[in-house]
């Protein structure tokens, strides 16, 4: 598995055009196909989860195609993946919605991805879940320590058609959260949850290694 470098090239497109999941602004951007693997069962943070999923598969989504773009004010990422049976909302207590997330070291430089950060070097993730286009940001300091954190300038839009999700995350370049200053590579990782497979929390497909996001 080779690490990809995502180039967030500058575009004159305005925010609305960038947020459109099938917008033409994205046509010009090359995409990287990121291979995803099921998260290891023995790292799930509760014995119950490990026992409950012992004879059950998770990590149904094998790949996500990712593109990046920026304009003067905003960085955006588009994630696309195949979902023949989308779960578009949490429509019951035992139902789980499709979801995706992008994850960064909180310091923008380095952390341990395998453990989802550590107390000293947390990770931040932008999380989108089908049924709402109100994404949220989370901070984690190790597996099983996810907490929602304020990231007020985070937006998302989504679209499902022809068996495929398209989800755009957009965040102001200038924000209190993760520093997105240009010129450096920021490690980035990806996760996708298949709602039809009851995937949630640690049960997901993920990129087991960091890739690089280059904001030009």
């Amino acid at each position: 598995m080779t690490n990809a470098t995502l180039d967030a090239r500058h575009s004159p497109a305005n925010l609305e055009d960038i947020l459109a999941p099938d917008g033409s602004a994205w046509n010009e951007m090359t995409g990287e196909v990121i291979a995803l693997t099921p998260t290891p069962l023995d790292r799930q943070p509760s014995a119950y989860v490990q026992a409950a999923w012992k004879d059950r598969n998770h990590g149904a989504v094998a790949a996500v195609t990712v593109q990046a773009i920026r304009n003067d004010d905003t960085l955006a990422l588009r994630l696309q993946w195949q979902a023949a049976q989308p779960k578009r909302s949490i429509d019951d207590i035992n139902a789980y919605a499709d979801a995706c997330a992008v994850l960064f070291p909180a310091n923008g430089k380095d952390t341990d991805l395998e453990t989802m950060g550590s107390p000293e070097r947390p990770v931040v993730a932008w999380h989108w879940r089908a049924g709402t286009d109100a994404p949220f940001s989370v901070t984690a300091r190790g597996i099983g320590t996810v907490e929602r954190s304020a990231e007020h300038q985070l937006q998302a839009r989504s679209r499902w058609s022809d068996g495929r999700w398209q989800v755009v995350f957009a965040r102001s370049l200038e924000s209190d959260g993760l520093s997105l200053s240009g010129g450096t590579d920021i490690p980035i990782a990806f996760a996708v949850w298949c709602g039809a497979g009851s995937e949630r929390a640690g049960l997901k497909s993920h990129s087991p290694e960091f890739h690089q996001l280059r904001i030009n």
Binding site: S46, V49, I90, G144, E147, A201, G202
Partner: peptide
């Protein structure tokens, strides 16, 4: 024991089982 998010806990002083709603991820485990 089932919660994968560390959101649920039992207080020592009175044994009340509580949930940190800011940590609850809605996994329904």
């Amino acid at each position: 024991e089932a919660c994968p998010s560390g959101a649920m806990y039992k207080r020592d002083q009175d044994g009340i089982v509580l949930r940190d709603e800011s940590a609850c991820q809605g996994t329904r485990k």
